[in-house]
Design a protein around this nucleic acid. Sequence first.
RNA 1: GAGGGCAUAGCUCAGUUGGUUUAGAGCGCUUGCUUGACAGGCAAGAGGUCACUGGUUCAAAUCCAGUUGUCCUCACCA
Length: 883
Amino acid sequence: MELAAKYNAAEVEDKWYAYWLDHKFFHSEPNEKEPYTIVIPPPNVTGILHMGHVLNNTLNDVLIRNARMHGKNACWVPGTDHASIATESKVVAKLKAMGISKEEIGREEFLKHAWEWKEEHGGIILQQLRKLGCSCDWDRTRFTMEPALSEAVINTFVYFYRKGWIYKGVRMVNWDPEALTAVSDDEVVHKDTKSHFYHLRYFISDGQGNPTDKFLVIATTRPETIMADAAICVNPNDERHHWLRGKKVLIPLINREIPVIEDDYVEMDFGTGCLKVTPAHDVHDYEIGLRHNLPVLEIIDDHGKLNEKAQILVGEDRFVARKKIVKMLEEAGNLVKVEDYTSPVGYSERTDAVIEPKLSAQWFLKMDTLAKVALETVESGRTKFIPERYVNTYRHWMENAHDWCISRQLWWGQRIPAYYLPDGKFVVEATPEAALKAAQAICPDIKAEDLRQDEDVLDTWFSSWLWPISVFDPEMPGHPDHEPNKDLAYYYPTSDLVTGPDIIFFWVARMIMAGEEFMGREPFSNVYFTGIVRDKIGRKMSKTLGNSPNPLDLIETYGADAVRIGMLLCSSAGNDIFYDEAQIKQGAAFCNKIWNSYRLVKGFSVDDSIAQTPAAAAAIRWFDAKLSETVATVEDHYRKFRISDALMAIYKLFWDDYCAWYLEAIKPAFGQPVDRATYDATLGYFEALLKLIHPVMPFITEELWQNMEERQEGETIMYAAAPAVKPFANDVLVNFELAEEAVNGVRGIRNQKNIAPKETLDLKVKGGFPAEVIPVIEKMGNVKVATVDDFGSGQGVGFMVRTHEMFVALSGLVNVAEEIAKLEKDLAYQQKFLAGVRGKLANERFVAHAPAAVIENERKKEADSLSKIESLESQLNILRNSQ
RNA sequence: GAGGGCAUAGCUCAGUUGGUUUAGAGCGCUUGCUUGACAGGCAAGAGGUCACUGGUUCAAAUCCAGUUGUCCUCACCA
């Protein structure tokens, strides 16, 4: 096959991806082989690919392809997440643009729109993953809201309800006034926000609802909530306020009378020591209210606007109301002062709206047992975290886990299977039919139309926590007695999970809980936490900053292999990634290097009749060992999830060892053919290199592998066996390194003296140097080597390769005074070094305490140093005599 | 406020349980090369008081304590 002069990534990538798909190479079925399983962290169904996905899925693909080439039955299950809040708000926005509100059209109509949206946008991100080269088993693609998986979720709800771990309760929840739903504690982001501390004067009531001239001062950041005040609270130990005992005060502007109460919760030295208690609109106030039996008066509605119970400013948004009421308070003489104040305020993770604490009826799942078990899973090491330090974070959360608020006031999601009877009682059943039956057991006359299903849906994480189970066997969850089906029995537990640390609680922890609860064991053996992708100067990638490149543009420009390399190059586990396009360029350059190294070899003409050169023989002996050594290193890196180190080891093997040394050593002179043995060995090494790098660069490796010889239809590098480690002699490596250093020495001298590489030099080497690599030195250094006992008195420059002395003969080019100065400097250093080593060896305590190997090493240093000094002195003598 | 991570070359990072002289790599930088696959290349080179202070040890980038800087997680005071 002819090979293009340049690598055309776009063409090659589409061709081979289609080929892989056609042959179903990504598809896995249970068989007798050992499984290697990954479930994808399901991206939001409406999402589009960003750099974080690129990093995550490249890592996943590297692991899965590597496992496949190591003979495992590799299965990577893809899919998407219905992402209830994110998707619902997108659909709401779309409808809004069309002038439609969701309340107007109702639940069923809205869901139709949502499904339409899903059908239209849902597949995009999965298509984009194909561009990246991801070898997902697309036949197994799942969606968290597809019927089977939804059923699993509902069954799970029923299961926990029957177990008594799900309960409905009125709680203070985090209300998102924009999305109009409660969100869990974990979905609230606290941000320091500039606001004001308003000091307000509350007058003491005379008992008839009239103000006296006495007053107290409270400090608040939320003056718009004073109409909902139920009491003023002080610390019982605060003597400054004892005079207030039993008194009542009047809420400014509306003059409603409220009591002064005492509670330890109030800090004496914060603010004025007086706290206004607003049970309906603050979590702590709610608790104080419970302790003191205070009435709860809600004055803010679901949209964050004041309602009629506020009496004033009705219908105003809470923030507008704040501004207005401050003015009113000032005019009424209740405003003492305003301070600037910065305090943490909760925002909704999804909509960025300020969270409003709100009292409402929600469903909760008890966490205590689940968390305890899941903590043990990780502490025992049955699931390992990489990097390990995330175990600390995990433990902290697990030990403080609150019950999980699982209901959401949304429509896009699995609807809670609770059915209310007209009298307010409810039953929990998986289907309306079962619910009717259950209801009739309570109240025999009841009919289907009398039952009303709960309006709320379940938190998205309540479906994704089943992911490693439900993708294989959707019937499994909720039926603990159910025998796992064939797939689940084979693929569960999965092997590795690659995800970001930001969802360690949302998702990872909860999958472990579900895994332990339903399967009795961990859902995965290893969790690899990636870092967050940041830009070059460390900022998070974001749409608003515009610092996030479109991965598809990058793939188009540089090729998917280059993008994959670029992301992997500087991605050690758990460290944030500083994205820089230069890394992708480096990846593209590497593709180019691989391509051209193959073009060189392909261009050789082979002559079966000629013998192998000694240089080629030495190079082959060496590269054989070097390859094995590197493969061992790479495998070790993979085992430890040091993916970027594995990549770098292969990169250097390919570029430095194979291209710069091996190919140069075996390359025939221009116009000359190469012998058969060398040619075959070279192609063999090239194929091994392709296999080694294939998990990282799937496309170019397939292209070249297919080009190397006529392959059968259905053959692929994807299933080629990874190069194995063969035993090798270490001295083969050491001897070649000596040759490299000798060549480097000669090149250094050329550079220094401005001698053209073409000019052949005479190199004298003292006896004892390994003879087998001398042809390599001659070829690579363009020198004629003579092994001698003595360098004689000719002009030239000496240097040392470890303990071996070398001498390049040069006439007329040597500045004797300069050389002498250089040698003297080296000599001085060696003498100082020797003194250091001898000092150490003279130290009795060192000799007494240090292990024998360390002392032995010091003695070797001493001997080497002595020999170097001797050599330097003899060279100096020669030079001095020549003057 | 509580807990945790990190601090090594201009940048991004290794440094495998303390022991090779002068602490490594990739990129970048400097210098020189139409070296017959590749200028997306080749060759040579410069560049680091291992954040600071103290301690343990025969021996510390590595272990311990403190300081400073930085990042993250959790909680949150009205």
